[in-house]
Amino acid sequence: MIKPREKAPELEVQLVNDTTWKLSDQSPENFTLVLFYRGKHCPVCKSQLEDLERKLDKFTDRGVNVIAISADTEAVAKETHKAWDIPNIPLGYGVSIQKAREWGLFISTGIKEEPELFTEPGLYLITPEQTVYWESIQSMPFGRPSFNDVLGGIDYILKADYPARGEA
């Protein structure tokens, strides 16, 4: 588990637009929002990412860069990007199970139509210095924070200069 105020593990993923994204290359005004999603097989993820797409401008207006990442293969991630209504979300794929564990994510074994192994959801706000400010990690597809709550939290953080909590 990564505690708030600790350096986030380095993260480098390929994006569906055939570029590479690295956390250490990010220089947001306020935060980078890193969303780990279960994969194309997950209807809750589809709803979550499409909601994020609708609110993407609100994050951008608050100085927050956004990325969504899964352990899906390149082909599956590119299918996801075409099938879901998420044209503006940088979509990363191929995160290794080992890297996901470094981030403290829960890993599940596939059932039915799911991949053999995949990550459960995780949502992180990372500072421009690549430290963890806030994290929400789930062991199931449900119980994710709403983006309206996250946006409200960011507003409070920025207004009150509120420090990251949970570091002790």
Rank of each mutant, 00 (worst) to 15 (best):
Y37G: 00
I157T: 09
K159T: 15
P90G: 10
E129L: 13
S24C: 07
I154E: 04
V34I: 15
G94Y: 02
E135K: 15
E135Y: 07
V44H: 08
Q98T: 13
P28W: 08
E6M: 08
A100R: 00
D18R: 06
D161Q: 15
I157A: 01
Q14P: 00
D51F: 00
M140K: 01
L158Q: 13
E113R: 06
L52P: 07
T73S: 15
K58Y: 07
I157Q: 02
I89H: 01
E10D: 14
S70A: 12
K99W: 00
F59V: 04
D25S: 12
L35M: 13
S139H: 10
L125Y: 04
Q138C: 09
A168G: 15
D155Q: 02
M1F: 07
V76H: 04
R144P: 14
I157V: 15
K3R: 14
R54P: 02
P141F: 03
S139I: 08
T80G: 05
G92N: 04
L125W: 01
P128M: 06
F31Y: 12
P145L: 01
K99H: 03
L23A: 02
Y133S: 12
T80V: 10
V16Q: 07
Y156H: 09
E129W: 11
E53W: 05
E102D: 14
N88D: 14
L151T: 12
L49F: 10
Q138I: 05
L49N: 13
S146P: 10
N17S: 09
A83G: 01
L91K: 04
T80D: 09
K112T: 00
F31V: 05
P90M: 02
K78L: 11
E53H: 08
Q138R: 08
A71D: 08
T127R: 06
P141H: 05
S70G: 00
G39Q: 03
K46W: 10
L52H: 03
S139K: 11
V44W: 01
Y37N: 07
N30V: 05
